[in-house]
Design a protein around this nucleic acid. Structure first.
Lengths: 232, 232
DNA sequence: CGATGGTTTGAGATATATCAAACCTCGTGG
DNA sequence: CCACGAGGTTTGATATATCTCAAACCATCG
């Protein structure tokens, strides 16, 4: 029996393009792997040797300058795909932010399999295009938004993406209370700000009653309209 | 006879995945269109109705805030693909920066054709992944680089991308003199800066002898090593 | 309990934005 | 041919958002 049968993201990941027989073949070349928070799966500038589906947890994609400045260039959730198939180098590292479970494949094995299964490539294409679209929207934030707009946008987006991964929640409905998978430094690295500026914006939003911060890693949205308005 | 036979980018665009017969079929659903500088092909937030291959010229992809701030989220050159196949909205407009020639397809026609031609989808997937990679590298610039680093990086990247589109030049060799397809305002919109800051950085680089500016739209790189060093 | 790592708060420095004016370049029409 | 005007660009003076440096604070864990 294939471990895909019990996979939580079986119906949402690119694997949903495959029938039972094909899934078995894919299962044969992959294996599931657990990562603890902080552990990396792929490193910046290394030759692409593996790709993966995220089964559970949250991971960051990040790059940095020689000077040690870091920028988080993407965040992936269950059912998302990571890595660079079809040769080339990955320009960013992939690191777990929470405990995570991924389904990894050798890059070459995956390449061969994908070329023989156009439906899988099609899913991957749709996913990649959606990710490119999302990334481009984020560029507007990085290039043109103020610190307060950045933080408000960040919280609003988080509440839309951090829905129950088991899909029990209604789709498209954002949640008003969630646990942040980021430290303050990591939030700063997503938004292109410093940790102090992020902290000040959080406390300002709290003092204005827009959000509440029960603990360091928890956020409660008290006034979503106001939050959206401040997102600019 | 198919107009693809004389197409300058026939061997580099996604069409290179197709044989003579398939090209004929693709040609039947597309048409070439000329754009003058400033003319838009696709508008932000409209439902995706057409997609295109760039044959000649340079186009920008851009989004803006309600407040009128603009961010250029991508620049495309001959052989690149633009538009959002497989449904959804395009989150950015596509506008010609120079006179341009594109090969346009109705989005639905293209979708149908692509689904029947996995090799075409494969090329498109590779291209989309490369673009996503490039876009993510640009995020590091937007989020973490100073104005001087941004401008130096911009000039260096331009010199690598604006090679002779006919491919007569040696591949991978950057050029030292080129005409900018951007106004100062547009450079500012690519880098997330103001027009004044861009101007000041240009004149500084010129006064340091790193570049020369024979005219508003021309750039000559005098000291590439120094330029790269300043790109951070 | 004290040590440790992350976070918040404060005071000051600075890069970049903003506002305003002068300056080219180029096309138009007298 | 020259004067004029318009758009884009450069330069200057000032304002301000964000960064930097530094200290206090707070949870967590041995």
């Amino acid at each position: 029996m294939s471990s895909c049968d019990t996979c939580l993201v079986r119906n949402r990941a690119i694997c949903s393009a495959l029938d039972a027989g094909e899934i078995g073949a894919l299962n044969a070349i992959g294996r599931t792997r657990k990562l603890e928070a902080g552990q990396s799966l792929i490193w910046e500038d290394e030759d692409s040797i593996l790709v993966a589906n995220v089964v559970d947890g949250v991971l960051k994609l990040s790059t940095g300058t020689e000077g040690g400045r870091e920028q988080i260039v993407g965040v992936v959730y269950p059912a998302d795909f990571v890595g660079r198939p079809f040769g080339g180098k990955t320009g960013h590292s992939v690191t777990a932010l929470t405990e995570a479970t991924v389904c990894v494949f050798g890059r070459r094995d995956f390449d061969d399999f994908a070329r023989k299964h156009p439906a899988l490539e099609h899913k991957l294409l749709e996913r990649t295009m959606a990710e490119l679209e999302r990334t481009r929207r984020w560029m507007l934030l990085l290039g043109r938004k103020s610190a307060s707009e950045k933080v408000a946008t960040f919280i609003a987006e988080m509440s839309e993406r951090l829905v129950d991964p088991t899909c029990m929640a209604l789709p498209g409905v954002p949640i008003d209370r969630f646990e942040l998978p980021f430290s303050r430094q990591q939030v700063a690295d997503v938004l292109g700000l410093t940790i102090e500026t992020v902290s000040r914006q959080f406390t300002r939003l709290k003092s204005e009653g827009v959000i509440d911060l029960p603990s360091r890693r928890e956020i409660v949205i008290r006034d979503r309209d106001q939050l959206i308005a401040q997102a600019g």
